[in-house]
């Protein structure tokens, strides 16, 4: 079965079982997202893909496409709400872009650019988040975690290693390593695991690779993430 719905006043076709975000993406229409990944079921934690249907807010990554609905996405109201979500993510972690190896490749940063986030507006939490550099090939900088759980999911469901988990509640939530010592070196984590190559921000970094791509040639230097993703045929642009 298939049908179509309206996204910002334009028709988007869908196949039965597709979510609003999937159908939009297949039609070459971009809805911002961070925790969603095409190879995994929706997670629904970042809420960046929020849209309005019939006056109600929905996570478009998880909401099924329905015949005839009118979906609002690229509106001033939703852009402002997405910007506020990004601002909260920035103050809850320690996101210092100038010293981050992921800068220019980072989806959080790219979304903030796209949403014209000129400051984080709120007061910063500056949470203490010690770095784990114990592994020979990978460094974990927990300061930048946005709790999308892509590494948790990839390690558990694809790599079959279950290296990562989230621990704690609310503002105390943090990414942990499933080892007695809590150190990445004491797991069987490897640099070619999917989990080592899926982080949308600068938490899971490959050693000896930092700042390899010059400023000006990085994925989001010249073009916003929406254009990069659509140009890549709807695939993730993680390099």
């Amino acid at each position: 079965m298939s049908g179509q719905f309206q996204l910002d006043g334009q028709a988007v076709p869908f196949e039965d079982g597709q979510t609003i975000l999937q159908a939009a993406r297949a039609a070459g229409r971009y809805i911002p997202h961070l925790c969603w990944h095409p190879d995994f079921p929706p997670h629904g934690s970042c809420k960046l893909c929020v849209v309005k249907v019939g006056g109600r807010h929905l996570s478009s990554c998880a909401a099924p496409a329905v015949e005839g609905i009118e979906v609002e996405s690229d509106t001033a109201e939703l852009r402002a709400e997405r910007r506020a979500l990004l601002q909260m993510l920035f103050v809850e972690g320690n996101h210092f872009c100038p010293s981050c190896e992921k800068s220019g490749h980072c989806q959080l940063q790219a979304q903030a650019y796209e949403h014209e986030m000129m400051s984080a507006r709120f007061a910063y939490f500056y949470p203490p988040r010690p770095v784990d550099a114990s592994h020979p090939d990978i460094v974990l900088d927990f300061n930048r975690c946005i709790f999308c759980e892509l590494c948790v999911r990839a390690s558990r469901e694809v790599d079959g290693k279950n290296v990562f988990a989230l621990s704690g509640r609310g503002i105390h939530k943090h990414l942990v390593v499933n080892a007695e010592s809590g150190r990445l070196a004491d797991t069987d984590f490897a640099a070619d695991d999917l989990a080592a190559n899926i982080c949308p921000v600068g938490v899971i970094l490959h050693k000896r690779q930092g700042f390899r791509v010059p400023i000006g040639e990085r994925p989001y230097d010249a073009r916003p993430i929406s254009r990069v993703e659509l140009a890549a045929g709807g695939r993730e642009a993680d390099e």
């Binding site: 996101h95 100038p98 984080a120 500056y126």
Partner: peptide
């Protein structure tokens, strides 16, 4: 805007 490099001492 966010404290920058000097704010690395905040923890």
């Amino acid at each position: 805007i966010n404290g920058g490099l000097p704010a690395q001492r905040n923890h």
